[in-house]
Amino acid sequence: MADPARDPHTSPPRAALAVEIVGLNKWFGEFHVLRDIDLTVARGERIVICGPSGSGKSTLLRCINHLEDWQGGRIVVDGIELTDDPKQIVAVRRDVGMVFQQFNLFPHLTVLENCTLAPIWVRRMPKRDAEALAMKYLERVKIADQAQKYPARLSGGQQQRVAIARALCMNPNIMLFDEPTSALDPEMVKEVLDTMVALALDGITMLVVSHEMGFARQVADRMIFMDDGQILEINKPKAFFDHPLHERTRLFLQQILR
């Protein structure tokens, strides 16, 4: 398990495991969308989850910061057990950054205001400090020159990099990426992936739902293949791509790696 030098700006670890999921079951109405999921993620670990659409991979990711409710099992994030208690939920969300497929930037705020909103109102940071922090992360995603613009003026790739900076401004211990490049025009995928690779090298815990297999090979510590609401295979990337254990993994990889 990789354990590179931690980013000094993240808060100190409170638990040995970043994420612990035990016996997770979830239904959408009659549809059993997550079936008996068990997964532990160590600190600093980078995990890439793939699988056909409708396999439950996004739903699983969204359970980790309680954007989705579930009916059975338990999830512990950074030592905090997620219950229905709003205090626990907010505590977890302060600690977990999320990047969405559709960016979800706040269109009525400038790039800088998007980044300072949560530090000011959730972390209670003075405005000046929050802006300094935001500029640091905007520089890191190479978009500091656009700080005063509104998101609608930016390209998709730029918006997604702002979304990454916005999440980083909360100094999260864990980052969740929900198909971060699938809504992008092809020529913008690389700039976002490069940002994510740089982030991975910094040692933050990452769970990424993505079909970018080049990225997965480059940064993943473990690959997860999901189908039909279940985890069918967890494997090291090399083994996963070269000798998948599950027949369905092999078929899936064949289809997307044509």
């Binding site: 969300r93 999320m98 969405f100 979800n104 930037l105």
Partner: peptide, 17 residues
């Protein structure tokens, strides 16, 4: 859009904020 609520929630903003 639903995504605006989700992004705000994911950042840890309370209901009123």
């Amino acid at each position: 859009p639903r995504g605006q609520y989700e992004a705000a929630e994911a950042l840890g903003l309370s209901y009123w904020r």
